[in-house]
Design a protein around this nucleic acid. Structure first.
Lengths: 228, 228
DNA sequence: TATAAAAGTTAGACTTATCTAACTAATTTT
DNA sequence: AAAATTAGTTAGATAAGTCTAACTTTTATA
């Protein structure tokens, strides 16, 4: 069983390496900075995690997760994102308030709890930030997070979150017929004024670029679903 | 801010003294036993809590909560019982599974979280064990927990929990038209066979003593609501 | 390529929460 | 009331996680 602290180091390593997509390993200072501790502290923990066979690490070298370490990291990420979804969807937390509380909740140890929570939320695929939630088997589809503004004309995408979380924006979003999981088709992008024509519930409307860049979407067509 | 451990000591002291109703103070060994630690460990912590002005303690004497300590203890109890209620009502945990997980959840630090959870559960007055949940102001009505079997004939009470949590019993409870918060009136107790005649939703039915002793009720008439 | 800068490591210290073993005080029993 | 038992305390040790300060290795650059 990994301690809360160990879990945090594994999660950090996961986020810096696997999830960033552009690196396989992380340096000691980088990990320390990510967690807000001193390099000396991180160094001690890296040696400990190596002993536990949760990471690969050699003196003066970079670190990376072993299979066992990655499993734990993904479980923590899963818990974090399920809790964020719960806080957002059920408890009416705003988009920007969920993270801090989820940092605590992610360390609660109970497989039963997290599986029941998953079921209660109806097995969500994305958290309120638009990040993928790993499933109970630890499978994580890494999807490229993008805004409606970046979506390709002709594609059909799904709204999975918002960036702006002000009451006024959320009201506006609602007025446009949009909500989490709503399917949106990009009809056209007007070169003249950059307005985006979208189809929502068979109705076509136009939205501004400023509006579009605050809507996080996921596009099955764009994503060649890659497993972590 | 009290640590998780400190919170646990304060909660223990609250449960041994105030909530038990028959003692004002607790001894070092008693506190240690309650928490599953050695007396030497508890002794260290008592000295620390005294320094923080959370308890009253003198060498070789008994300990008791100060006003500040009691405030924290009640907050922890409130969190514990709200989480138990959430697990039971929303996540379909069984009556006997909620405690262990709530022991972890009670230490999550976020006033916003607990207030939103309270609202989401519609401000429950009792947890699934039939224990009173302190309100947001820290007010705790200490009610005498009793079963339907012990209720006084003529009184009207409210079902607040069950003791047996088997699927078969819960099904039976359901069939009798009973659920949490359901009002039950005790019509009569048959001396001949000890069957209890109760009125539920304007219908009168009879239940066995075995059934009745597994239904936890609260009776406003019996309780002269005392504040902790 | 020599040197300066950056990255990483080690040693020693501190805090929290725990333990064991030995001791002292208070209470109970004879 | 003296002895025995129970309750409570102290001292010293340990483990986890953190720090600072000094040191070493690696990398970048002049």
């Amino acid at each position: 069983m990994a301690s809360n602290t160990e879990e945090n180091y594994l999660k950090a390593l996961f986020q810096i390496t696997i999830e960033s997509g552009n690196k396989q390993e992380a340096g000691t200072n980088e990990i320390a900075a990510h967690l807000g501790v001193k390099p000396a502290t991180a160094n001690d923990m890296l040696k400990k995690l190596k002993l536990k066979k949760l990471i690969q690490y050699e003196k003066y070298g970079k670190s990376s997760l072993t299979k066992a370490g990655k499993k734990i990291a993904i479980e923590v990420v899963r818990k974090h994102r399920l809790w964020e979804t719960f806080l957002f969807q059920k408890l009416a937390f705003s988009w920007d308030e969920v993270h801090e509380v989820a940092e605590q909740l992610e360390h609660i140890q109970s497989k039963q709890l997290i599986d029941k929570l998953d079921a209660y939320l109806e097995y969500p695929a994305f958290d309120p930030h638009g990040d993928t939630i790993p499933n109970a088997k630890g499978e994580l589809t890494i999807t490229i997070k993008k805004t409606l503004l970046e979506e390709v004309v002709g594609h059909q995408c799904k709204m999975i979150g918002v960036k702006d979380n002000s009451a006024s924006f959320l009201q506006y979003v609602n007025k446009m017929g949009l909500s989490i999981n709503q399917t949106i088709k990009i009809v056209a992008r007007q070169a003249f004024d950059d307005l985006l024509e979208i189809e929502v519930n068979k109705k076509i409307t136009s939205v501004s670029p400023k509006f579009a860049e605050n809507i996080i979407v996921e596009c099955a067509i764009c994503n060649k679903a890659t497993k972590a």
